[in-house]
Amino acid sequence: MIWFDLDNSPHVPLFRPIFAELSRRRQEHFITARDFAQTKDLLTLWHIPHTLLGRHGGKGRLGKLVNLLQRGRELARLVRGRAVTLAVSHGSRTQLVAAARLGIPALLMLDYEYTEARIFNTLATHLLMPAAIPDQRLAQAGFKLSKVIRYAGFKEEIYLRDFTPDPAFRPALGLAPQEILVTLRPPSMVGNYHDDKSEALFRACLEFFSAQQNVQCLIVNRTAAERRLLTAALRRRSNLRVLERAVDGLQLLWASDVVVSGGGTMNREAALLGVPTYSIFTGRRPYLDEHLQEAGRMTFIEQARQIDNIPLQRRNGSAAFTPGNPDLPAQITEVILSLRRSGVA
């Protein structure tokens, strides 16, 4: 049996095609999830069976450490006694702790090199990463290359394969045909990579976009802390709205004319869909995002004055989307199954 742990919203669409592929192959698996951001709501939206366990540890290091140990212990208690042969996640530290405690091999996916290499090197049996990130970059970031397995493409392409634009989605948001939709996501307020500069850039974006004519701003926030960041701006501007319910994120991005985000996954999704994408992430830049910038598919905003130069116009959203690697879900599934079959996972 394969055990998946989902501890953040992007992991739900990420693993959804993998779950479908495993079910098609009649491979037994089960899912645990952390009650954080929209993880629970997305699992419910797509009717994915799961066991909800634990919450986020908060912004402080002590809270994160306590949560790491506590949720790790709770996961181990839940999984103990099950015939689990492989644990799989995208960056779940608590699953690594639980799997190590139970002696279960762990496959950890990740696509951001400037993260906690030490715990991943120590507790993960294998690290599954995009082939585009150079070995030198990973070695400089402290990763053990002997543990790294590669796959071709972006992790976002695992689920972009199944994307079909819904022409009814944009009208359902209450937008007039010629209104410009700017979708914004605040920088994480509780992530390890939180930076005050990103917050300042986000506030500048709110001021600029909400002052423009024929523009509607839809804000995708994940936590109460992010909502507090928005409170003052929401009172002042009538064309600022917060997304109040879980929706299909890819449909929202496709319906957008501009996307501005303080995080990696949403930016890469939008860029790969061909939507004008602007990153206000001010931490150490992921190699994959640099790659998209070099390809002209993403722009980094470093100073508030750059925001004034963002073009605001309706884009042609009627074109079809063509995925870069349509076989990626099956390829990732095969990696997972081959590790389980090998007996040395």
Rank of each mutant, 00 (worst) to 15 (best):
residue 281 F to S: 12
residue 275 V to D: 02
residue 279 S to R: 11
residue 276 P to L: 06
residue 283 G to H: 08
residue 266 M to H: 02
residue 303 Q to M: 10
residue 268 R to A: 11
residue 291 H to N: 14
residue 236 R to H: 11
residue 246 A to E: 07
residue 274 G to L: 00
residue 271 A to K: 03
residue 301 I to T: 11
residue 258 V to F: 00
residue 287 Y to E: 14
residue 267 N to Q: 07
residue 281 F to T: 06
residue 312 L to K: 04
residue 292 L to H: 06
residue 268 R to G: 10
residue 299 T to Q: 11
residue 276 P to R: 05
residue 304 A to E: 12
residue 261 S to Y: 00
residue 279 S to F: 01
residue 269 E to D: 08
residue 242 V to T: 06
residue 303 Q to N: 13
residue 251 Q to S: 09
residue 299 T to P: 00
residue 308 D to L: 15
residue 267 N to P: 10
residue 274 G to K: 02
residue 248 D to W: 00
residue 257 D to R: 00
residue 260 V to D: 08
residue 294 E to W: 07
residue 303 Q to H: 14
residue 263 G to C: 07
residue 268 R to T: 09
residue 239 N to A: 06
residue 275 V to Q: 08
residue 245 R to T: 11
residue 284 R to A: 14
residue 285 R to I: 12
residue 268 R to E: 11
residue 263 G to I: 02
residue 275 V to S: 06
residue 271 A to R: 05
residue 246 A to I: 00
residue 247 V to A: 03
residue 288 L to S: 09
residue 257 D to C: 01
residue 256 S to P: 01
residue 314 R to T: 02
residue 261 S to W: 04
residue 299 T to R: 12
residue 239 N to Q: 08
residue 245 R to N: 12
residue 278 Y to R: 11
residue 263 G to P: 03
residue 269 E to I: 05
residue 253 L to Q: 11
residue 261 S to N: 06
residue 250 L to P: 03
residue 308 D to Q: 15
residue 257 D to H: 01
residue 240 L to H: 09
residue 282 T to A: 12
residue 297 R to D: 10
residue 261 S to R: 07
residue 303 Q to W: 06
residue 272 L to Y: 00
residue 311 P to W: 00
residue 255 A to R: 03
residue 264 G to R: 13
residue 261 S to M: 09
residue 285 R to N: 14
residue 249 G to P: 03
residue 296 G to T: 06
residue 289 D to K: 15
residue 312 L to I: 01
residue 309 N to Q: 13
residue 288 L to Y: 10
residue 312 L to A: 04
residue 257 D to W: 01
residue 250 L to V: 10
residue 289 D to R: 14
residue 305 R to N: 14
residue 293 Q to K: 12
residue 253 L to S: 13
residue 272 L to N: 01
residue 288 L to T: 13
residue 307 I to R: 03
residue 306 Q to I: 00
residue 272 L to G: 08
residue 278 Y to M: 11
residue 287 Y to K: 13
residue 307 I to S: 12
residue 287 Y to N: 13
residue 296 G to Q: 07
residue 266 M to F: 05
residue 240 L to R: 08
residue 287 Y to Q: 15
residue 266 M to W: 03
residue 280 I to N: 10
residue 300 F to H: 04
residue 283 G to D: 10
residue 241 R to W: 08
residue 243 L to S: 03
residue 287 Y to F: 15
residue 260 V to Q: 13
residue 239 N to D: 02
residue 304 A to K: 12
residue 270 A to G: 05
residue 311 P to Q: 07
residue 300 F to L: 05
residue 285 R to P: 10
residue 266 M to K: 07
residue 268 R to M: 09
residue 298 M to T: 11
residue 301 I to M: 12
residue 304 A to S: 14
residue 235 R to P: 08
residue 241 R to P: 04
residue 250 L to A: 14
residue 300 F to M: 02
residue 244 E to Q: 13
residue 245 R to E: 13
residue 306 Q to R: 04
residue 280 I to T: 07
residue 283 G to F: 04
residue 310 I to K: 07
residue 304 A to G: 05
residue 263 G to H: 05
residue 255 A to T: 03
residue 292 L to S: 10
residue 255 A to Q: 04
residue 235 R to I: 09
residue 239 N to F: 06
residue 262 G to Y: 00
residue 307 I to A: 09
residue 256 S to I: 05
residue 243 L to Q: 11
residue 297 R to W: 06
residue 282 T to M: 13
residue 293 Q to N: 14
residue 312 L to V: 04
